[in-house]
Design a protein around this nucleic acid. Structure first.
Lengths: 341, 341
DNA sequence: ATTGGCACTCGACTGCGTGGAGTGCTATCC
DNA sequence: GGATAGCACTCCACGCAGTCGAGTGCCAAT
């Protein structure tokens, strides 16, 4: 084993101890609790090098060492092994999620479950409208001058919008339109809808074309509305439990950030770019002041590769990364399975 | 002014000062900051009486007094005057809510607004399915053996449910059924639907009756599902701001309670029984351990009397009751107006 | 009934001394 | 040259005593 390797072992040991005890860890404790095979003095030399490299710091002169953001990053990138969940745990996840009666229920159960498993804050993004496909479009006349447009996606999501029309509806026309729309559009990704609708306009009678234009406008608007992308959060109480120890002042900024859908959605979108099974953002990597002392661990679910949406956990820098990553990955997998079925 | 009256004045002064300063208030400070017209010694006598009556306590021997739950209760029942909001504030509420594009948006804006106004946690209950009325029912065939049932309420809420059928759909039958259902059911309160549907069964052909039965079952089930009653929460970060001072240990239990829909719904339902414009629950009156150090201020909206749902604020015992009550009442009124229009 | 005076209590704050954990440096060993 | 042992040094945490001040309760006087 090269001395470089041992240094990383020391880093791993520091992180493991610090995560477990929440206290700066010194060279003596380290040599006693881990079988590193070298004396405290040697460890001190390694620590000096690690500190030089910016992976650990001392809170003050005569204290032990604490990992930095960079240290944790090194740890998750090179040192951590995702430890698989126990069989009973997997059984519990599977059983709980399978009892769900609809999409809302699945999401609700998943987010609570993940909060419980990780003992942290859990976040689950609703399956994205933009990336899922269309199963069915329904046009429902409501009174003479209102038309309800219902969009059903392959992920079981239903969006509706009521249109106010300038002239009375021709029911027969609506019925024809409904058939044409479904024939032309079923199976398309929602992002492709507006273009497809436009090309339909050409083939239709003037009255139908006018109606389709209104529908196009409504659908486009619905899709454009970022607010349709929702993230649900659970387990915020888990933040409070260790608040004083883990956050410099209060958890206020964290709670604020978690209530801002926009912040969460941006972060989740960024993490989807990683194209790894489980993505991690540590401290300032989140690019948000309120989250500078938290880490995000997320995974895509509900499709190939990055998936159509994300699920994850949020906790203090000092979190059990391997355990959290395992739990997140497991829940993402079961979610994918349930939604596909 | 009788001595009894003065005692209540002293109580009011204590609460006002304590709310403002967050520190136990003594007799000297009281006589200086309020024009009570008597000496500190007299105030001390009154304080002794108030303490005897259980309205205030001293944290320790040589400290000032702090109001008890009972003290606050006395205050809101007999002493507080709801101070109306300023015109700019009202304008802001009105403007913000009127920009909303749909029900979800209204609720979302309302809850954020109220959190901001009160600087506390805000809760808004979705208009209850049980108490609102039906505007339209739509039956949408999806493929040969699936039927989508869409329920639209007068409060703009849309619920849907997909039914799986044992035999192929007869589209003409569905169309007839759709007309019959809407003719018979429009305007009914949702709670009355199941009975009305049952009586419809008698008038229909055997095939139609079978289909109606399935629909009845689905609708009943949907209505029975308590989970359809949702409460949204915002501003939890406001709890953290004063956490150390206002809560004996952590805000954990409070956050837990706020995540439990069941807890909130029970409490809101209880408060609706008060039949007052604004209902208040102080500390242990909430009947929930996690909320023993918080107060709820809520008001009904969206209908006559208790209304179809509630909106409110949650904060520490030591809150600005008059201000909170004013804000809650105002938001409830504007919500009612918006939803009626 | 109200007030002024007074003794008393108790927490908050301050300063001081001690113990201990942990480090960095240097000389030494293999 | 890397690993180790020894040692002096630093600095925080903790306990303790003393002081200060706010506030009370009670009593005698008005």
């Amino acid at each position: 084993m090269s001395s470089e390797d041992r240094r990383l072992d020391v880093l791993r040991a520091i992180i493991e101890d610090y995560v477990a005890t929440r206290e700066p860890v010194g060279s003596r404790a380290l040599s006693e609790r881990h079988r590193l095979g070298v004396s405290p003095a040697t460890i001190r030399n390694d620590m000096a090098a690690l500190e030089e490299a910016g992976l650990i710091v001392q809170p003050h002169t005569s204290a032990g060492r604490v990992p930095t953001d960079m240290g944790y990053r090194q740890f998750v990138d090179r040192l951590a092994e995702v430890k698989p969940l126990s069989l009973p745990e997997r059984r519990a996840i599977s059983a709980l999620l399978e009892q769900a009666v609809d999409l809302d229920d699945v999401i609700d159960r998943a987010v609570r479950l993940l909060a419980q498993l990780t003992q942290q804050v859990a976040v689950v993004q609703y399956p994205s409208l933009r990336r899922s496909s269309l199963r069915h479009v329904e046009l429902v006349p409501v009174g003479a001058r209102h038309l309800l447009v219902v969009i059903i996606t392959t992920t079981g999501r239903v969006e509706q919008r009521t249109l106010e029309l300038t002239e009375d509806l021709d029911e027969a026309l609506v019925a024809r339109l409904r058939m044409r729309l479904n024939a032309a559009l079923s199976g398309l990704r929602l992002a492709e809808l507006p273009t497809a609708l436009e090309s339909l306009v050409a083939e239709l009678s003037p009255a139908g074309a006018a109606l389709v234009r209104v529908i196009v406008a409504a659908v486009s608007e619905t899709l454009a509305q970022e607010s349709e992308e929702r993230v649900v959060v659970a387990g915020t109480a888990n933040l409070a439990r260790t608040a004083g120890a883990d956050f410099s002042r209060t958890i206020g900024p964290v709670l604020e950030a978690l209530e801002e859908q926009v912040v969460l959605l941006r972060l989740l979108a960024e993490m989807a770019e990683d194209h790894t099974a489980v993505a991690v953002r540590i401290g300032r990597e989140t690019q948000h002041a309120g989250l500078a002392e938290t880490s995000f661990v997320t995974s895509g679910y509900g499709g190939e590769g990055p998936g159509v949406a994300r699920v994850g956990a949020v906790g203090p820098l000092r979190m059990d990364y391997p355990g959290t990553m395992a739990a997140v990955r497991a829940v993402a997998r079961y979610l994918t399975r349930i939604l596909a079925g």
